[in-house]
Deep mutational scan, measured.
Amino acid sequence: DTFTFTLDGIEVRLHGASEELIKTIEELLKRDIRWEELEKWIREWEK
């Protein structure tokens, strides 16, 4: 599955994202998160 969203005018596609990761990103997007914050968060998630 591919999860697609737009952040700061950039279309982002995550391939093979888990349901948990998708739900977490959706929550972060509701908080009007900035790209830099999401990028940092995703790097931490990957560890």
Score class of each variant (00 low, 15 high):
1 D>H: 14
2 T>V: 13
2 T>G: 10
2 T>W: 11
3 F>N: 00
4 T>S: 12
4 T>I: 15
4 T>M: 12
4 T>G: 09
4 T>V: 15
5 F>S: 02
5 F>N: 02
6 T>H: 08
6 T>V: 15
7 L>G: 01
7 L>A: 04
7 L>W: 13
8 D>I: 02
8 D>R: 00
8 D>N: 05
8 D>S: 02
8 D>F: 06
8 D>W: 03
8 D>G: 05
9 G>F: 03
9 G>W: 03
9 G>A: 03
9 G>C: 05
10 I>T: 05
10 I>P: 00
10 I>H: 13
11 E>S: 05
11 E>T: 14
11 E>Q: 05
12 V>Y: 15
12 V>F: 09
12 V>T: 02
12 V>M: 05
12 V>H: 12
12 V>R: 02
13 R>W: 08
13 R>S: 15
13 R>P: 02
13 R>Q: 15
13 R>G: 05
13 R>E: 15
14 L>F: 06
14 L>V: 14
15 H>E: 15
15 H>S: 13
15 H>N: 12
15 H>W: 07
15 H>Y: 12
16 G>R: 04
16 G>W: 06
16 G>Q: 05
16 G>F: 07
16 G>K: 05
17 A>T: 04
17 A>M: 07
17 A>Y: 06
17 A>P: 07
17 A>N: 03
18 S>I: 03
18 S>E: 04
18 S>A: 05
18 S>G: 07
19 E>F: 09
19 E>D: 12
19 E>S: 12
19 E>I: 14
20 E>K: 09
20 E>T: 10
21 L>C: 06
21 L>E: 07
21 L>G: 01
22 I>F: 03
22 I>D: 00
22 I>Y: 02
22 I>T: 05
23 K>N: 12
23 K>T: 10
24 T>H: 11
24 T>E: 14
24 T>R: 14
24 T>M: 14
24 T>A: 15
25 I>L: 08
25 I>A: 01
25 I>N: 00
26 E>H: 10
26 E>Y: 07
28 L>S: 04
28 L>H: 06
28 L>Q: 05
28 L>K: 06
28 L>F: 09
29 L>D: 01
29 L>P: 00
29 L>I: 13
29 L>N: 01
29 L>E: 00
30 K>C: 05
30 K>T: 11
30 K>M: 09
30 K>I: 09
30 K>R: 13
31 R>S: 15
31 R>G: 12
31 R>C: 04
32 D>W: 04
32 D>T: 10
33 I>K: 04
33 I>D: 04
33 I>Q: 03
33 I>H: 03
34 R>W: 03
34 R>N: 10
34 R>K: 14
34 R>V: 07
34 R>Y: 05
34 R>E: 06
34 R>D: 06
35 W>H: 04
35 W>P: 04
35 W>F: 14
35 W>K: 04
35 W>G: 02
35 W>N: 01
35 W>D: 01
36 E>N: 11
37 E>I: 06
37 E>D: 12
37 E>S: 06
37 E>T: 09
37 E>K: 04
38 L>P: 00
38 L>T: 00
38 L>F: 15
38 L>M: 13
39 E>A: 09
39 E>D: 10
39 E>I: 14
40 K>H: 10
40 K>C: 06
40 K>Y: 11
40 K>A: 12
41 W>R: 12
41 W>K: 12
41 W>S: 07
42 I>T: 01
42 I>M: 09
42 I>N: 00
42 I>W: 06
42 I>Y: 09
42 I>P: 00
42 I>H: 01
42 I>S: 01
43 R>S: 13
43 R>W: 11
44 E>M: 08
44 E>R: 05
44 E>F: 09
45 W>V: 06
45 W>E: 04
45 W>P: 01
45 W>Y: 14
45 W>F: 12
46 E>V: 13
46 E>F: 15
46 E>Q: 14
46 E>R: 05
46 E>G: 11
46 E>W: 12
47 K>W: 09
47 K>V: 13
47 K>D: 12
47 K>A: 12
